[in-house]
Design a binder for these strands. Structure first.
Lengths: 221, 221
DNA sequence: GCTTTGTATTTTGTATACAGTCTACCAGTT
DNA sequence: AACTGGTAGACTGTATACAAAATACAAAGC
């Protein structure tokens, strides 16, 4: 284990990111540099730099001379994000499967077991968050496509607050665990096309679920 | 025409971006904050912020305490970038065509005529650069997918220096003009699938060309 | 009363100054 | 000669201070 030196900018970025993703900062809310700086006990410079990073990640909108706001995502934008994920993750899986070894599959299997255990314990938050991402990433580890991978990671992060919200309000996705198992099995058998198709459906099903919820919330206002 | 106030950070970002894209700063070369600040007659703060933006765009690598370098792109990475473009641009076109009106097609036609004229004049640099992007974007104007659009724009920018290099060394892509015409015609006729397929081939053909050149250059060293 | 103009206040943008980290080089040791 | 430890210089990271822009609000004109 290597110790890593983190700059204040990075620490601040993590802090603000978490605030946005867990809903402590609501969408549209302005982010005052001075206030954040004081709260986190740093100067405004690292706060500014962190905000710019978060803008690149899509979590924040930054307008010159007007400041930053937590970016709002509409139901239609969520749809686009998930459709992009479906497209890109299927592409990753397609290129990954031929390069996956037995031990790679074992790793994926481990992640899936952890995920199923968490789900059985009713711990949907963790299961749909980190564990879910880890399982997916394990499947893509053979793709050797760093750019695609990074875009997918960014998309995931971007919509993760909506996924979390969905879990809170609707208890999470019921069918996800079986779908995961199915995708892994197809991948193991080398059925690339079917595995990719199942993955796409898996992601698009989540989209429909979350979009329905968001549309309902928007209508209520 | 509205006058737009640009911050120094934005101006610096544009300046450095151009330096990288036109080859004045070579890949791998370190970008010293103090030197850039002095050259552009600003302090180091806007330089830092510009470099971070460029990192988000993928043009620069930024390592804590070590500084920024113009990012190197290998032949395999160029391949990935173009394949991503093929995938995402086809997706944009697919969603755009049903929404394109007569006047949208007219705009695309205008761009294409300009492009062909520039090409006939032997002005491949402009034709393969801005004009090419404008034509492509016109085709995607009905897609209504801002995120996808932005990713594509970023990918384009990222590899544009290699496209420019290719033009310098090999005179540009010979078949591109006819391919453009063909894509536009298919789109006008509403033949979505065929148009998307042609677009993919168009982009992948450029990939093969540039990749061949890059591999040759890498071998020579 | 409504619009316009001027001013105070808040907030962001940038310069300067200082602190922390990395790198390269050199002396001393084995 | 190879290795360790230490030191100086270069460069980046961050705090502070000041400048510029945006905003809110009050006063003047119609």
């Amino acid at each position: 284990m290597q110790i890593v030196h983190k700059t204040r900018t990075q620490l601040v970025a993590e802090a603000i990111r978490e605030k946005i993703l867990c809903g402590e900062i609501k969408a549209g809310e302005p982010l005052r540099q001075a206030a954040l700086a004081q709260e986190l006990n740093v100067s405004r410079i690292p706060v500014r730099e962190a905000l710019m990073q978060l803008e690149a990640e899509g979590l924040v909108n930054f307008e010159a001379h007007k400041g930053a706001t937590a970016s709002e995502i509409s139901a239609t934008q969520v749809a686009e994000t998930f459709e992009l994920r479906a497209l890109l993750e299927a592409e990753l899986l397609k290129h990954s499967i031929p390069n996956l070894t037995k031990s790679d599959f074992d790793v994926a299997e481990q992640h899936l077991l952890k995920l199923e255990k968490a789900m059985a314990k009713g711990d949907a938050m963790v299961a749909t968050g980190e564990l879910n991402t880890e399982f997916h990433n394990a499947l893509y580890s053979g793709a050797n496509r760093p750019q695609t991978f990074e875009i997918v990671a960014s998309l995931n992060q971007n919509c993760s607050r909506y996924v979390r919200m969905h879990i809170m309000l609707a208890g999470g996705l019921e069918t996800a665990p079986e779908e995961h198992r199915q995708i892994l099995d197809l991948a193991k058998k080398g059925k690339i096309k079917k595995a990719c198709e199942a993955l796409k459906q898996h992601i698009l099903a989540a989209k429909d679920d979350i979009q329905a919820l968001l549309t309902k919330l928007e209508d209520e206002q």
